[in-house]
Design a protein around this nucleic acid. Structure first.
Lengths: 231, 231, 231, 231
DNA sequence: TATGAATGAGGCTTCATTCAT
DNA sequence: AATGAATGAAGCCTCATTCAT
């Protein structure tokens, strides 16, 4: 009997080892993607960084693209969960909680968020992961119904402008998307010391965009203009 | 004398032919980039599509990357010009003209705009075009001063929220960026029939974001909700 | 335990196989270089001749130039060793042993020697192997000190002409270099049947050049002039 | 009649122009070959340096190789002439004049001499200039008969060692060849300030190699060893 | 089961030569 | 006659994937 137990243990241990290795691969890939050009990341490098052999990588992922898609799925799952939580809060009465959560989630790791955007572009035409890519979109859309329901209510309440409800969340998505791009854009002179204030400013816009009625600019420490007229 | 003239003519004709060929290459590249994955576009394919030999491409561009950067520079120059025109209008009193122009310009050819975004990512680490990439950023920044000046005035006038002026145009940039992404995103269920209304909605947000005071939702035909409560 | 042993054995066998393949590549390259123009030898041809895939070559050598440099280093190492042995003999009292050894070594495989000379010219401006090229020169110079020491002694003893010691070995080097060129020169009418006698004649000069005092022409069977006046 | 004359003049002028241009091409090629790697010299560069169009080059030379061979033939013709003059002097009684002239000629422009050596290697397998290459060898051999005749006499006189006469001039050729290589070799530590003394030393060896009887080391200023025992 | 050597398709680029003007 | 744009063969190298050990 102890034999059986130890055998089961061994199997379990092996499984754990296998899963650990999978995570190692993902992490290694992620690290590499974030520190260098995407094209520069080869399967070889990933394997080396993960501390395993190149062949082993293919025991876990059928193709290189599957590693990429896996990173994307993991990330989008996380974002979707955050959004879902935000939606729940909104439904419980906290106005703007959904957008707030969404922005916060996406701006928490802008580097990773941007990476996922870029990976998506690479894989757009990849046939070997077309199905998983569809899964990715499904995850993104997973909250659409709740969002629509929520927004329709708010439109009905006169809080939000009366446009098709998806206009609201799509605009919100667009702004978040752009905010992430902005974070890493080399095109602007702005002082990067401002970055969190800037993101707060943008988040605030995202939370209130489409709102009807008085716009409430303020926000705690956003204004850094000493001699502002409103102060 | 007629000899001289015809000789000059001939040279001029040759130069024109040469420049035409350059445009042909760019156009061929563009067409291919827009219809398939960027990695799938090879110099060979470009040459074939342009109806010329592979070697000829290298008479016009030092490297493949120079073709890409050229596409980008051409485009960004156009955008910058549109923005500059908008800024002028704003300064002449047309409120929101700058943002309006900017959004219009970028959403006029969202496919091209998106391509340029993607090309930029590819070239981020390319050493052979580092300088031209810097030039690209210079073009983008070329209007920053005018923008800052204009926005500072509007902040002073109490029209815009009192934050560092660049917050305003960066937020605007972010939203435009995201709007373009949205256009081609496959992640959403929304009816693409809506697309121009949606973009108008977003543009409207872009034009008024950061504005203080009453938000004016309407816009001509934006609302398509037949049984909206406000109607 | 047998398991461990066999595992270690397997690893060792693998390593040997790998090194064997390296030798195969070198040999294939060598064979090709010796039978056709250097420019005509492509990596593809080398791989084919070695019976392996093109990509495999790059598992062993970072660039094509590294194959060339490797051939050169191997050869120069051998020559330097021969010279070193000759120097030792000279120091033990065998007059002229160093020069003798040197000539013998270089003329043992004049084709290979000449190839190395030519490869060096090709690589003179190659940036990717600049360092290894320096190593090559280091190998060549590795015996300079011993040579200088030895020659200084002989100059002191009045055996050699009193010029800076390096004059002697450089002259010797030059003659050897030229002798190799001569071997394969197509410019001369001389009967190639003579070749070894000719080389012996030259070697003899090399061994005695710079010697003071009676020159001893003879040498065993060098003279083939039947009706020479001195006979 | 003046018409005819001017027409003839014009033709003559044209011919001169044509020949001038040919020289320009050769000179440009030469200059380039001497200042950079041989492979780096393209027909384009030659044309540019010569100040003419690429196509024009092909009006003068059928292929690129013909330019190379032309450089070689010009040079070898010069060397052969120098040697011929030396031979004449020797026959007039000046001992060693032939070898002396030969060494002097080849060491006058060691860079050019070396270039020709290298070009020869490149063209060894070139089919398009095989014939001209043969011509090159013919030039080199053009003095063989005189040399043989001269040397046979000296052997008969007991001045030179009794070996086939070509042994003597081949050995001499080899040393000259090697001396040129030595000039540009990067493999040696010797002080390049010595170079002309070194070459004089080698020339001296070349002139006396194969001589029977007392070796006369000296030579005017060759010895730089202050405390030499023979002084 | 893990490994990493082997593979070869395919990308970018160069340059001698041609030929229409 | 002079030109230089056009050409495309051919070279080097990369890397995702396979497979024997």
């Amino acid at each position: 009997m102890s034999n059986k137990t130890s055998s089961a243990d061994r199997i379990r241990a092996k499984k754990k080892l296998f899963l650990d290795r999978e995570k190692k691969i993902i992490d290694a890939a992620l690290e590499l993607f974030l520190e260098q050009s995407i094209d520069a990341v080869t399967v070889s490098k990933i394997a080396t960084k993960a501390g395993i052999g190149k062949g082993t990588v293919y025991k876990h992922f059928l193709t290189k693209n599957e590693i990429l898609i896996r990173i994307m799925l993991d990330y989008e799952g996380h974002i979707a969960a955050c959004l879902a939580a935000g939606i729940r809060k909104t439904e419980e009465g906290v106005a703007g909680a959904a957008a707030q959560s969404y922005f916060k989630a996406r701006l928490a790791r802008p580097d990773l968020d941007r990476l996922v955007q870029q990976l998506e572009v690479r894989l757009a035409y990849a046939e070997d992961v077309a199905e998983q890519l569809e899964e990715l979109h499904r995850i993104r859309r997973s909250n659409e119904e709740s969002l629509s329901h929520m927004l329709t209510k708010q439109i009905g309440a006169g809080v939000l402008e009366d446009v098709p409800p998806h206009f609201h969340y799509l605009a919100c998505w667009a702004l978040a998307q752009g905010a992430v791009d902005l974070w890493y854009s080399k095109s602007w002179n702005y002082n990067h010391g401002d970055i969190s204030d800037l993101m707060e400013f943008i988040t605030n816009i995202g939370v209130t965009m489409g709102n009807i009625g008085q716009y409430h600019p303020v926000a705690k420490g956003t204004s850094k203009n000493k001699n502002s007229k409103t102060s």
